[in-house]
Design a binder for these strands. Sequence first.
DNA 1: AAGTTAGTGGTACGCACGTACCAGAACGGG
DNA 2: CCCGTTCTGGTACGTGCGTACCACTAACTT
Lengths: 194, 194
Amino acid sequence: MTAATPKGERRRQALVEAAAGLLVDGGFDAIRHRAVAERAGLPLASTTYYFDSLDELVTAALEFQGNGELAYGKARLDELDPRECGGDAFIELVLDLLLGPTGDRDAEAVLLRYERLVATGRRPYLRPLMRKLSGELHSLLFDIFARAGQPVSRERVEELIALVDGAVVNALIEISPDPRAAARRMLGKSMQPR
Amino acid sequence: MTAATPKGERRRQALVEAAAGLLVDGGFDAIRHRAVAERAGLPLASTTYYFDSLDELVTAALEFQGNGELAYGKARLDELDPRECGGDAFIELVLDLLLGPTGDRDAEAVLLRYERLVATGRRPYLRPLMRKLSGELHSLLFDIFARAGQPVSRERVEELIALVDGAVVNALIEISPDPRAAARRMLGKSMQPR
DNA sequence: AAGTTAGTGGTACGCACGTACCAGAACGGG
DNA sequence: CCCGTTCTGGTACGTGCGTACCACTAACTT
């Protein structure tokens, strides 16, 4: 169900943003009718009015959040100065794109990203969207390597992404997880010998 | 709460095995009091009698399952003949250890393994156990490389594991996921150039 | 035999969830 | 101004969950 009036559209959008916020804060399981409504400051029934099912709401939230992250990545690409992206700075840039910009509650945000990735396995209806987002991220990374004067093949991009993702999921079981540091280590080792 | 009599111990064990079965079939979320009791053919109250909380039951299930997988890996190590582990066969061996022996419902079983890994992030009480299991798996793999006549450093083991794990989580969003094939590709590329 | 401990199993409580319902308000085109 | 469409929001239903309770039985100790 989509909105028909501008006001309705605004309301619907507020729900999507609230759901996206919940997604970031607590994962897919945090997106519930009542939680979304409360976060958006709207009544419970508005969530079922604008979205036929919870799945539809989840999909909209993921799309909103994914596009936001891609926009962030594109902005980073645009402002990229090839002269000032030495090894370390460049690695941080790649990590920013894959794990999100470094923040205080680092491990938490990263965890969410990988919960999303894995949860797709249980939510086949998200696969098409997830594939699209993932594909655009790969392309973005490909462009960034080229722009930074370190062109790589698409296969190599996939390999580096896999390396980062694997490092992250393995870091999550540490006593005090620091997935970004783990990924940084792996990436450094794999890129340095060139 | 632990059992005090042999019969009680058997009953408790039946619950653990039922919970482990549910873990394999449906992930952590599938471990519920009622489901465990039904699968074990025992009354609901037996689950709360032998386990103070659901977390305790989940922990026991994970430990049981993890130890089972490690035992499988050790068996593979023991029967390993260094003369007949050429490149491809050896890669399959590594995949068997990391993803489980190849079966019919392949993607499903692999998905569960990675849900477990990521879910640890949300269940800090599992971290110590998870770390222990993970450490033993790393050692096992280290030994297997040595036995196969391809000794590698522990760092390299970590890198290969990360590569496989990353390939898997990225494969899970494909239309018809084949994570094992994706991992095989990555592993082949990384090990072939010596 | 009596009494303590361990185990059993049926039942119930309170809660949170997805979803449905519906009377009424707001709105927009004729 | 009026009327059909769009939206609003309070409420309710059914389900499944973790957990608690308790009368009861089996087994073991002294």
